[in-house]
Each structure stands twice: as structure tokens, then as C-alpha cells.
């Protein structure tokens, strides 16, 4: 479905991504893990069209999308839940959701949009209770649900999730992860960036490990979980042995 081939990106003249290639198949959950500053957010933003991609190609199906504007990429069926959620805090919960369907309003799908809002509410009943509340007053977990709901309102084929559990209590994270799995079951393809590499790999089909702008490992998720290097660097195993020694 999504094929990123050999892309490079730059901030000013500093190269961040150095020839990254990944692919995401229809219906998969693919995890992207890596240390802070490895370039995960940069990669996701390049896919969303927020950054220009001077080298390499990004294909969605047969269609090259690396030169499209963010608006056209949403239209093509890719939505992003950005790192830090970035909800529209002065607006109500319901307005945030409606704006998620901004392009669909432009193509006059009013009735279907009302139905999508109900679908998001059934996924997150808490949001329904708070539908007329100002979004900035929600808790972190609720804001993450709202950011997810807002992205779903565009009815994406591919969902890019950037650190959805960042800063959330374990119980709330678990709920978000459960929702992600449910979304995949409903037919959405997911590219998942996560700090919590263990949780991410457990629910993913495959995974990529990114280090300073390069893919250093790629494999089935299960095999990455068993990989000694990955365990040492990202899953917190092995540290104990160092302490013991």
C-alpha cells in the first residue's frame, strides 16, 4: 500500500533522513521504533507532505505522493495523529471532530459525516459525554482520543500514529493501544511510532528500527522482540545484567 523508497530530507542544510526505505502492506500494523531524535517524526511528516522530499519516492498504491501538498495527501487517504496530539484547544470536542472531516464537508457529505461522528463516539464514549466541552480542558488521555478521532473523521486508508502513548498513564496507554488494534480489525492500515517499543511490537505485524536517519533493522515484530540488540537498546533488557556484573 505505502512504499517509501530511499528518501532523504533536510532541515536547512542538515540531512535528517539518509535514504530511508519502508513499506506498509494493506491491513498491516507496522511499528517504527528508534531513540529520540532518530528521525521517526521526520519520516512521518515527510509522508504527510509537511516536509519536502528532495530525494527518493513515496508511493501510495501506484500513485507517487511525495510532491503533493498535505491537503492532497489527506485527500489521497492518509491521516496523521501528530506527536503531542495538537488538538484545536479553543474549540469544542465536536468541532475538533468536524474539522477532522473538513475535506469531506467540502465535498458535501453531511449525512455521512454525522454518522462518522457517531462512530467515533462509540469508539470513545468519553468524547461523547464531553462533546460540547472546550478541547483544551480535556485530560491528556482524552486529548489523545480526540486526536485519534479527529484523524479518523477523514476516513483514512492509512493512519500514521506518532507516539500516541507519550505522557499517558499506563492504564490510559493500554486503552489507546486496544483501540489501535480494533481499528486495524476494522480495516485501517497503521504505521505506528512508539516510545513504548515493547507494546508497539507486540501489536504489530512487522517493525523497523531507525537510527540517526537510517533503517538499521527490519523484521517480523515477533523476531524483533527476540532480537538481542533490540532488547538491549529498546526493550530495557540486558541492563540488569550490567548492574549485576
Amino acid at each position: 500500500m505505502l512504499k517509501v523508497r530511499n528518501i532523504s530530507t533536510f532541515y536547512d542544510r542538515i540531512q535528517i533522513l539518509k535514504g530511508v526505505s519502508i513499506h506498509v502492506g494493506e491491513g498491516e500494523i507496522v511499528a517504527l521504533i528508534g531513540a529520540n531524535g532518530a528521525g521517526k517524526t521526520t519520516l512521518i511528516n515527510a509522508i504527510s507532505g509537511l516536509l519536502s522530499v528532495p530525494d527518493g519516492t513515496i508511493m501510495l498504491g501506484d500513485r507517487p505522493i511525495h510532491n503533493l501538498s498535505p491537503v492532497k495527501i489527506v485527500k489521497a487517504g492518509i491521516s496523521q495523529v501528530p506527536e503531542g496530539r495538537l488538538i484545536f484547544s479553543p474549540l469544542t470536542v465536536e468541532d475538533n471532530l468536524k474539522l477532522g472531516a473538513y475535506l469531506r464537508y467540502r465535498s458535501k457529505e453531511k449525512d455521512e459525516i454525522a454518522q462518522s461522528i457517531e462512530e467515533v463516539y462509540s469508539l470513545f464514549p468519553l468524547l461523547k459525554e464531553r462533546s460540547s466541552q472546550i478541547a483544551g480542558t480535556l485530560s491528556g488521555g482524552e486529548q489523545q482520543m480526540l486526536a485519534l478521532g479527529r484523524a479518523l473523521m477523514a476516513r483514512p486508508r492509512l493512519l500514521l500514529l506518532d507516539e500516541p502513548s507519550l505522557g499517558l498513564a499506563p492504564l490510559v496507554s493500554a486503552q489507546i493501544f486496544k483501540t489501535i488494534v480494533r481499528l486495524r480489525e476494522s480495516g485501517v492500515t497503521i504505521l505506528l511510532v512508539e516510545q513504548n517499543a515493547r507494546a508497539a511490537l507486540r501489536m504489530s505485524d512487522r517493525g523497523y528500527v531507525l537510527e540517526t536517519g537510517t533503517v538499521v533493522l527490519q523484521d517480523k515484530a515477533q523476531r524483533l522482540l527476540e532480537n538481542k540488540e533490540v532488547q538491549r537498546a529498546y526493550l530495557g533488557k540486558g541492563k540488569k545484567e550490567i548492574w549485576d556484573a
Binding site: 498535505p70 489527506v74 484545536f88 468541532d95 473538513y102
Partner: peptide, 23 residues
């Protein structure tokens, strides 16, 4: 109006506004 709200959204959160398809 949706356009008015989209304008506010662009002001407070320009990146997220682009990500929902607001020009």
C-alpha cells in the same frame, strides 16, 4: 461556520490544521 472554525484552527495549530486538510 466551518470556515470560521477552520480559520481559528489554522491560527492555534497550523500543523494540525494542514493535517486535517485545511489549506
Amino acid at each position: 461556520t466551518l470556515t470560521g472554525k477552520a480559520m481559528l484552527a489554522t491560527a492555534v495549530q497550523p500543523r494540525a490544521a494542514k493535517l486535517v486538510g485545511i489549506d
